[in-house]
Write a protein that binds this DNA or RNA. Structure first.
Lengths: 243, 243
DNA sequence: GCTTTGAGTATGTTCAAACATACTTCGGAT
DNA sequence: ATCCGAAGTATGTTTGAACATACTCAAAGC
């Protein structure tokens, strides 16, 4: 009838199952909390073994996309986004890993004079022209974060770069800089009116605010960045090792 | 003197394998790049099936701790990210550096049964008695944070220790453990009624919430900790270095 | 000497089957 | 009607087996 699987393909069956499920669970009924077909049924319907089906499902469970409950069934997990340092603070990468689409609600880049804060971070005179990039990003369900970045003039960005692709990959490819060190400050703030409306939360809602300076491998500042994460279900994960 | 596995235990074999490997790969030879024993050998040596061994290994591969290479073998992955923290999350130290006095508004320690979350973090059975330490701390101007810690029973704490002094210094001096790695999750939440009243903020005020597991130099979990920072003017600083 | 071939090795994929365990539900006993 | 236990359901664990595939290395072939 609908989704099938090709035993002669060179892509493993469990991967096909995985991909099939990824598509399947995007359907509204599953977002609504409906249970997936039971493993045994899936196996029969696809004409493969239950173990293989489980293998595919497990992948998604590991990613936190699905939740299994013994004796009950498997359904789509309540979305909790968490940033892992593996992806080095790449929102696009993080979302892609979760099988979610990144939506850029707003994207604007233009040159502005550096304010005190930016000038301090970049060690340039206030008023120096720097490229400012504002991005309102999220999933199809709505905006998740507002990110505002300033780039060091040394990088020689034109403002015409394609900022819709993963930022650090783009920077590395286009101008060969590679972010290496990040100095961050994180705090919780209340959304003021304007911010609340852009992030589509109520005024005063908790916002995870991160201010950071990013340095390249030579230890020179390249980016100054402020991010406002819509608090609901958003988590920032880090591993810290003391040497 | 081999690592073994107990088929009669209620913890699944693949989990036992997982834990066993976690310990095993901490040994220097594996950090050096040595290959793990082959799956078939492991299976034979432990007297279990290769599939079960694979199941255990897969978990670690998923976490990025191990790398498998077809036709070659499995070894410890090259560590990519490492994070440093200057004051290493010592509230006392931080305040002292600012020339402010630390006030303990509440301080309570007692033994409680481990809930699922704590049991998971410590790799013990739920219900195991663990020492729980609650501290409401701040400056003379009012409480700044509520910290709740659980300590691994392995540490052998009596609950009679002097928890009013800097925690990690005390632990190091008293029982010789030394916090080395911290795995953290940070998010912004709204203060619910009870929390709001203890931190003396209005209900719904933004709270910086940090959940973390702290590990000693052997990589064994020693503390599980939740902290609620009163958001106003409170900032969490970290330095991240990508290797 | 250099390339090709092939045997050997270790992981990768898939299957069928059995039993364990957590959860739900429904019917019977109190 | 309420409580309790048994039957049913769906996932969780484990096994053993077979074959596929990527990689290594060395011997055979040019």
């Amino acid at each position: 009838m609908k989704h099938q699987v090709d035993p002669n393909s060179k892509v493993p069956l469990h991967s096909q199952v995985e991909r099939m499920l990824r598509t399947l669970i995007r359907q509204p009924e599953y977002q609504q909390g409906a249970f997936l077909p039971k493993e045994v049924d899936l196996a029969n319907q696809l004409g493969i073994s239950r173990n293989t089906v489980r293998h595919g499902i497990s992948k998604l469970v590991n990613e936190g996309l699905l939740v299994r409950k013994k004796g009950v069934g498997t359904k789509v997990a309540q979305r909790k986004v968490s940033t892992r340092l593996d992806h080095w603070a790449s929102f696009s990468g993080e979302m892609k890993a979760k099988g979610m689409e990144v939506v850029n609600y707003e994207l604007e880049s233009r040159f502005v004079p550096a304010d005190m804060e930016v000038a301090e971070a970049f060690q340039v005179s206030p008023g120096t022209k720097v490229l400012k990039l504002s991005r309102l990003r999220g999933t199809s369900e709505g905006p998740s974060l507002l990110s505002v970045s300033w780039f060091h003039p040394r990088l020689g960005l034109s403002g015409q770069e394609d900022f819709s692709q993963p930022l650090y990959q783009m920077l590395e490819r286009e101008i060969g800089v590679y972010p290496t060190v990040s100095r961050e400050e994180i705090s919780a703030i209340a959304a003021e009116k304007k911010l609340a409306s852009r992030l589509e939360v109520r005024e005063g809602a908790p916002i995870l605010f991160r201010r950071r300076a990013v340095f390249d491998s030579d230890g020179k500042a390249m980016e100054f960045n402020k991010v406002y994460y819509q608090g609901e279900g958003f988590t920032y994960s880090i591993d810290i090792e003391r040497k």
